[in-house]
Structures are given as C-alpha cells and as structure tokens.
Design a protein around this nucleic acid. Structure first.
Lengths: 125, 125
DNA sequence: AGGCATTTGTCCAACATAGTAAGACAAATA
DNA sequence: TATTTGTCTTACTATGTTGGACAAATGCCT
C-alpha cells in the first residue's frame, strides 16, 4: 500500500483530471488534462488506461460505455466518474500536497510561496 | 523514470524534510519530519533510509558522517544536505502539486481552496 | 576494570505496488 | 479499404514499505 489514502502521484493526477472534466472524462480527454497538469513532462495514453483500470479496481472511479458520436471515427467512449471514496482519497492526498508545499515554502523563503499564493488569489478572486 | 523531475511522492517528502531541517538532517530527524508531513499515515525508519540511498544515487542529496555526540548511545550520524539538482527537482514537483491543488479547488468549489488559502496566509502573514 | 544491558543509529533483503512505453486491436466514417 | 478516434494488453522499471539485522556509544553493576 502506497502513501496517503492509498493513492500514488499519478493516480492523484488522473483523479484530479476526471474531477475537473466532469461529464467529459474518457481516455483521450483525461490524457489531455493530465498532460496539462503534469506539464513539462509527457504522458503516454497507455499509462492513463492502466491507471484508470487500477483505480476502478479499487472502487475510486466507475465507468460505462457511451454510444458512438456521429463524427468520423467517433466510436464509443468509456466514460469515467469519480466515486465518493475516490473524491475523499483525492482530497486527502491533496491536503498532504499542500502541507508539503508549505514546508518547502517555509524552508525556501517567502518569495517562493508568495509567487504561488498570488497566482492562487488571481484565479479565485 | 518516474513522473515530474524524476522524483516520486515519498522522495518529495524526504527532500522537503531535509530542506526544512537544514543542518540537523539525519535519519532519525528526517523520519520525524516526514512523519509530521505525511500526518495520518505512519512511516517506517527503513523506508527513510532506502529512499535516502536512492536519492543519493541520483545526486539529489549528499551525505557525510558526523562525529559522535557525548550522550548515552549518541553514535555517529550520517548527515544529509540537499544538492542544487535536488532542490530544483523538489521545486518542480511542488509546483505540480500546487497545480493539482488548484485543479481540485476549481472543480470542488471555492470553499475547499479557501480553507487552505486561509491557513497559508496565517502562517506567512 | 570487565562485562552486559540499554539507547541511538544505520543499513540490508525482499516484496508489493505504481509508473511507463510500445504497440496490438476495434469500430466508426469517408 | 484507408483514415480517424479510441481502447486495451503486455512487459518492464522504479518507488514504496516492512521487518529485522547489525553497530557503536554510554551507564550500571559486581
């Protein structure tokens, strides 16, 4: 069993992506969102599916097949939704992440932390 | 090779602990600090040493043996210091952690984020 | 002094789980 | 049947984790 609430770093990323994609979470879009969050790093599609499988095994997410859309190549997608347990695990691991950020901020000096706090405030008003 | 800047979740924790302990970073104290950061979860000493070894292999930290202190059982400790590469990796992974927190905050609503922002502000003035 | 218990510490061996790449396979439309 | 959009599998590497072995100081007791 891994750290914090039984989820790892990549799982955290995938869970966060599903949460923020709401009704449009399926393999390809999740991959896009995760790439965005992980930023300088590139992520493979395979990694996403494997992780999705494991998250479903743990009951953190559930999935169902949608009907195909009417666009070229638009085949049926497997859509994902966060379950209550998954949301809780995600919140716990995020809380730890914040704690780590704080520790780093204190050790590295206020400039580092304020840079992020500023960005945070801007987005939330 | 792992995610973000080549460090995992636990490595991130250990690096942050070393950073915040400054001149007093060795096995036992690092273990204490990591336990504090990982909070509800318990961490074994062995996990710390193994991770420390791997971090040193990657050049993220360096270590040296101190001379024994004059207290009962006070034997020589192996002290650790963060190297420049390690500090950079830590900052990058922390930046990603913040990004994830933001994504969660946006998806979960402002209450979640503000709870943490408040705490953040209190500590930094 | 000599010897052993106790305390503080480090390190290894082994295994479980998460992270990753590469590419096979499937089903739509054109 | 070629192209596009999408899913899933295999196999491997790296991290996470436990448990306990081992080492070196001091303190106490005869």
């Amino acid at each position: 069993m891994p750290l914090i609430g039984s989820i790892g770093q990549f799982e955290q990323l995938v869970l966060a992506a599903i949460l923020s994609l709401r009704d449009h979470a399926y393999g390809v879009t999740i991959h896009g969102k995760v790439s965005e969050l992980a930023q300088p790093r590139e992520v493979s599609l395979g990694a996403i599916y494997v992780t999705l499988d494991r998250l479903e095994d743990k009951g953190f997410v559930s999935s169902w097949l949608s009907s195909p859309t009417a666009e070229r190549g638009g085949r049926a997608k497997r859509c994902y939704r966060l379950e209550a347990v998954g949301e809780q695990a995600l919140q716990e691991s995020a809380a730890t992440a914040v704690r780590i950020s704080e520790a780093i901020g204190q050790a590295l000096g206020k400039n580092w932390a304020q840079k992020w706090r500023k960005q945070w405030n801007n987005e939330l008003g």
